[in-house]
Design a protein around this nucleic acid. Structure first.
Lengths: 210, 210
DNA sequence: TGGTATTTCACATGCTCGTGTGATTGAAAA
DNA sequence: TTTTCAATCACACGAGCATGTGAAATACCA
């Protein structure tokens, strides 16, 4: 028996979902609330396997509720439920440890499958959400900045700069004269269009040169 | 009719998959190869809707094949196929624009569903993979650095340092004396355990203070 | 009410950094 | 073969930065 705890502000939908879930073999709604004001206590009290959490709720919304639960409980599965596949919310939900993210327009039979999948450690997602997640993932690892055409030696110097080395330290680390370090750094500044050590370091981080 | 292009080094499995897919209504294997040596040309020639790409192949593996296709074609759907839900490969595949990632142990009926889902823009994933993806996502956004107990004023100064301002510029920007800037920065260095501008900037980036 | 932390400012010293100018070597490209 | 460029080193100057010491006003907490 999969125990479900439900958060949904719309009374009709709350009723409907409760009837759907509790009316199905192997599923049971242990409680249903209209917002997350006391979500920590409620999760602790009812010990659900899966929490179905609407995102758009008054007073305390679903994302906030998710955060609150995760502060004290990493085990319970939390399925976010929403009308829109809004980019920002998806990101927020996943970053905060949601186990799945499904749209309200999901057909009832599918919803039950998703709940079961979440209960067994899966990560059910509506197709459009899954696509979004992959795209976000791909994007955030693609933006390795422009190629500034740094030579190998210049890259080494920049790396040491980023690691907090002074000119003197770089010189001894690389077995070259301090004036050579200067001349490398001068070229680096030209190529990065900066004119100080700290700007170069900042740019190295921003553009993922290091 | 969904046109599938298949890459799989194992002859038995290649045959089996071809028969399964081509034997199903609405699906057709337009060609099958044992590695990705000429994947760009083959994708261009056969114009498949979905590419089924094994990861572990000799000569040119699936990840490399994925990269090659994505250099010239962002439209075709690419479904990665593998025996292991190996963390590194999943990450690589998704970062390089794969549309889905499924395990070979997937039952035949399910495989066809997944292909269809990929063709219509979804992102089919085996449950264990989906879970991994969410965890990776959650982890990479959780490491919000320690709290160094910087005061508001100190945070402002640090922000300006990161943006490449000199002491003089910070002073005029904040309407305070340059010596005040110095004293703020001295405190910042103490709190961050650094002793230079560029180290502070680096630490600000690393620990997401900015 | 007194300790603590923040914010403000001042003066001084010495090292670090940015820049200018110039030179040599060796390897790769035209 | 000449040109170009990366890498190396040198000297010098001035501005910027790190640090030390000291102090005063404000605010908050116990």
């Amino acid at each position: 028996m999969i125990k479900v705890l439900l958060y949904e502000d719309n009374p009709q939908l709350r009723e409907g979902l409760t009837m759907l879930i509790s009316g199905s073999d192997g599923f049971e709604v242990v409680a249903a609330f209209k917002n997350c004001e006391n979500v920590e206590a409620e999760v602790a009290a009812f010990e659900p396997d899966v929490v179905l959490m609407d995102i758009d709720m008054p007073v305390v919304n679903g994302i906030e509720g998710l955060k609150r639960v995760r502060l004290v409980n990493d085990k319970v599965k939390i399925l976010m439920l929403t009308v829109f596949d809004d980019n920002q919310n998806v990101f927020q939900a996943i970053s905060n440890g949601a186990n799945g993210y499904i749209l309200k327009k999901t057909p009832p039979a599918r919803l039950l499958e998703y709940i079961a999948e979440a209960a067994t450690g899966g990560a059910p997602m509506t197709a459009s959400i899954a696509t979004q997640v992959l795209k976000m993932f791909a994007n955030m690892n693609t933006k390795q900045g422009e190629d500034y055409n740094l030579s190998d030696r210049e890259k080494q110097v920049l790396q040491l700069l980023v690691d907090g080395y002074s000119y003197k330290m770089i010189a001894s680390e690389m077995f070259i004269a301090i004036d050579t370090v200067r001349s490398h750094i001068k070229k680096i500044y030209e190529k990065l269009h900066v004119n100080s050590k700290s700007e170069a370091v900042a740019k190295a981080f921003k553009d993922r040169i290091v």
